[in-house]
């Protein structure tokens, strides 16, 4: 199954809006919580209460700073599986445990087949594969496959846990293969981009870039200062302009 489907019927994926991501980790923790009891259960934590705790997380939030001659910025940056169209994480897998679903493009690991050779994690440039040493298998973002189709959930809740949780509304889910879908139009409108295009992995997920700052004169179409009225600070004449009758 390590062969890739020639095409997938859908390209389900996530879009993250870096312009409004406040880096709060809500998506990361809700992902951990949902998946700990879900399809990939458990997401083991080692040294949970000791030195150097570490655990399986499908979504992790970085913070970067950028700097050029004109400005420096801070950008919060969540990172999870991008459900690539040409994912070597799948093709390198020797067992067929790693596969890309033909019906929706989701990249999954079959827990029953995985031998835990870790090669797929070496093959993923995006760090989206998480080895659970205690289970001896590779785990990863499932795009919440056990939520998005789940008939036990209200239609409106059939979205990935991270999307539902994000307080800022910075995460979107949908079919990026359908140019008419809401999410594709959002990507179009906002110039959504793929990470590390040079990898050739053709990620499905997109990121919406931070918008330019509006911190310079003219950025908001406003004058850069107020013209002081005549006699503006002369207290003897300042109040003359108040003759307009104001009623309470």
């Amino acid at each position: 199954m390590t062969g890739l489907p020639k095409t997938t019927r859908k390209k389900l994926g996530l879009v993250t809006d870096l312009d409004i991501c406040v880096g709060c980790h809500a998506c990361a923790v809700s992902c951990k919580e949902w998946n700990a009891g879900g399809h990939s259960a458990p997401l083991t934590d080692t040294n949970a209460y000791g030195k150097d705790p570490s655990g399986v997380w499908f979504n992790r939030v970085h913070v970067f700073e950028t700097q050029n001659e004109d400005e420096t910025r801070t950008v919060n940056f969540p990172r999870s599986c991008l459900h690539c169209e040409q994912p070597a994480c799948v093709t390198v897998c020797p067992t067929g445990a790693s596969y890309k679903r033909e019906e929706d493009g989701i990249v999954l690991v079959d827990a029953e087949k995985c031998i835990g050779c870790k090669l797929c994690s070496w093959a993923c440039p995006y760090g989206a594969r998480e080895y659970d040493a205690d289970d001896g298998i590779m785990k990863k973002c499932t795009l919440c496959i056990d939520r998005i189709y789940n008939e036990n959930l209200e239609e409106s809740e059939r979205k990935p846990a991270c999307v539902i949780a994000c307080p800022a509304g910075a995460r979107h889910f949908g079919d990026l293969g359908d140019a008419q879908s809401e999410i594709s139009r959002l990507v179009e409108r906002r110039g959504g981009y793929a990470l590390m295009p040079e990898s050739g992995y053709e990620p499905v997920n997109r990121y919406l870039p931070p918008r330019p700052r509006k911190d310079r004169a003219g950025d908001t179409g406003t004058a850069d200062h107020l013209d002081a009225a005549e006699n503006a600070v002369d207290s003897s004449t300042f109040f003359e302009w108040l003759d307009k009758a104001l009623t309470r």
Binding site: G55, E65, E69
Partner: peptide
């Protein structure tokens, strides 16, 4: 290129997602 933020200049890490090392 990894973050796609290169157009904003040099990109440096301010905070890693977790304070301890992961897999």
């Amino acid at each position: 290129t990894a973050t796609g933020l290169g157009h904003l200049g040099t990109v440096t890490q301010l905070e890693a997602p977790h304070t301890s090392e992961n897999y």
